[in-house]
Design a protein around this nucleic acid. Structure first.
Lengths: 209, 209, 209, 209
DNA sequence: AATGAATGAGGCTTCATTCAT
DNA sequence: GATGAATGAAGCCTCATTCAT
């Protein structure tokens, strides 16, 4: 594609190209080892262009995480609102986790890094707000469903937040762990099957005897 | 402590000071944002001193991880060898995980980062060997106990390696997750109680009905 | 020159500025005492710019040497191919040595240092190949001409490689020696006149009686 | 050798050990890449000991050079004073050069580096004086013999200093050149035979026809 | 909107030198 | 006289970011 054509496709296009490239590069290398130069060159753009769309590297990174959280929280809200038994909701949660994983298996690593304190120091207030908002939404929905399950006598009687932490943490931990251990080309299926078992175990373990 | 006293205590001391400071700084900031300057100044030493003890920043980092793995794998081997029922072994594993956590709650973050590929590029062969050795030892022991449990009909009949990944990944994931979510001064007890629940859930879920 | 003008001239310019400054600083201080900071500041650029053009300090250094070798070997090949008597070829060699010296009297010091093992540890394969290639070309041409002279009964019957070593080593040695002994501003003419005598002596001495 | 015994052998011993080790290490690595740590550990001493005998690394380096110059100038003066024909003196010079080379083939590289400006910046006045004194003595003797040869009609009528530069520069240049080109284990004989030819050529070339 | 050359702060690492023992 | 742990200045290099075009 020549420079001329690309220019005519407007700002939207370069933004999408950067987002796509960033997902890939951040996934492969993590936040620190990923360079702006590599991301933009994979997007067939120049470094300066990144800064037309994002305030800095961190905000691009955070943007990717927020995107997942948005997707997540929106879908999870749908489930929470449904008039179906808790156990069926939980099944759907499982599908949702898998869906997110399919959509971008590595983006979860970003969310993790984000909270691990390696990034998050030069974010604008606006982005920070969004991050908190969607994070709270997604997390809150999980908590409320668990609470519902406890009240319904389905799940063990523990602090619902702790249980949500366990679900969420286990999910992310297992993905990261298996990912890093099995650096194969097609690890996606392997991770998914392990995740499937993990979920079954956790849900089984959370059930009141 | 004055210069005089410190010097009197020999090389050992500065090494320990660096290890201690490194544990703290790496935990707080992660590998990349932790600087050699900060680690050594917290140890009340000058930057050059670090290199009397460690080849570079990465090897210091890896050293910390290996130390945990060593501690872990040595204790875990003791448990594996015992002539006690699998379920009792699992109980002891739990104590061991807690013991490691008590000994240095943050060091696990290092192990995780280590495998995430953000570090590990300038390690000497010797250190790399050690890392692999102790990593395999610790992991292998968990796998063999799970296998024993499956054969004894106690645990569900799934790939033991997958189950080990789930145990290990969940543990690390929950620690990281809860740690990063609750950035309080005294989160240790909070994390531990969540971990306790997590273990109970997972063990319960792994049991054959 | 203002920033505006310089930027307008593209990447080429900064490269040339660095090469020019590097020649000067390396000549004055040698490889080790020359600092990247000094080279780039003399080029009115910032340190980072050097690394847009050269992988590291060593490759810049080597580049300068290869440039001379290229110039040298290309011209020397022309002479070798000519259908003229050996003695005339030798005359032209002399002119060539002087030409290289005129073009950059100090660059020979680089070649020397290069082989002395004080540099040459972080070169990329590509640069290393080039260095060897042009080095072999230049040296080989001298050897073949000497061989021709021996066979024609013009020069004494000694190992042609040894004779080439003597010609080359004497040339470089005399330049370095006179340069370092007479640290005057205008030593160029002095060196050249000494070189002229040296060549006359060596050629005379190499003749079969 | 235990610490106790070494201590009883007095200062002289450690000084000699350092000198010996320094000759070796400087020869192998050049001034910059040779480290104080390596020199002293080869001498089975600790770094601090070097500074009991030499003000700094440069002065140790210079000391080695001065030692050669001393040896050189003293022997050369003997030759100058002899009532023998110039041509015979020249023969003896040749033997002397070879003798120095045999005694320490690499020390000449030091002298060269010394003048190339990579060292020589932190010398005490006293050492600087010595360096100049013995340098002038050795060089002056060569010049005076050449002058004698010119006056006797043996050598071509050129500036005697230039001729001395050529002899000296060629010698050092050939050693360095051949040394660096043929990094073999037993290059000493190879260098010597090349030097022999070189001398023959230069002396022959200097003769008046 | 896009470029990409240039920047320069900041980090890692080395190693000659010191000094308390 | 000797030690050797510790120092800390100095150097190389990276890379997120800027800005003139």
């Amino acid at each position: 594609m020549g420079i001329t054509e690309r220019k005519h496709q407007g700002k939207r296009n370069s933004r999408q190209a950067i987002i796509k490239a960033a997902r890939k590069v951040f996934s492969q290398k993590g936040f620190n080892r990923a360079t702006v130069e590599e991301i933009t060159s994979q997007a067939k753009l120049s470094p300066g262009t990144l800064y037309l769309h994002f305030k800095n590297k961190e905000e691009l990174y955070t943007f990717l995480s927020i995107a997942v959280l948005k997707r997540f929280s929106s879908k999870i809200k749908d489930i929470v609102g449904c008039a179906i038994p808790v156990e069926e909701k939980t099944e759907r949660y499982f599908d949702l986790f898998m869906d997110v994983y399919d959509h971008d298996p590595n983006i979860l690593i970003n969310l993790f890094h984000l909270q691990s304190g390696e990034a998050l120091h030069h974010l604008s207030d606006e982005v920070m707000q969004q991050l908190k908002k969607y994070s709270a939404l997604a997390y809150g929905s999980v908590v409320s469903t668990i609470k519902e399950g406890i009240e319904a006598g389905v799940y063990i009687n523990e602090c619902p937040m702790a249980l949500a932490d366990i679900v969420w943490g286990s999910y992310a931990g297992v993905v990261l762990w298996v990912n890093s251990k099995h650096l194969l080309n097609d690890q996606k299926d392997f991770v998914k099957s392990t995740l499937k078992i993990a979920f079954r175990i956790i849900l089984q373990g959370m059930k009141r005897k």
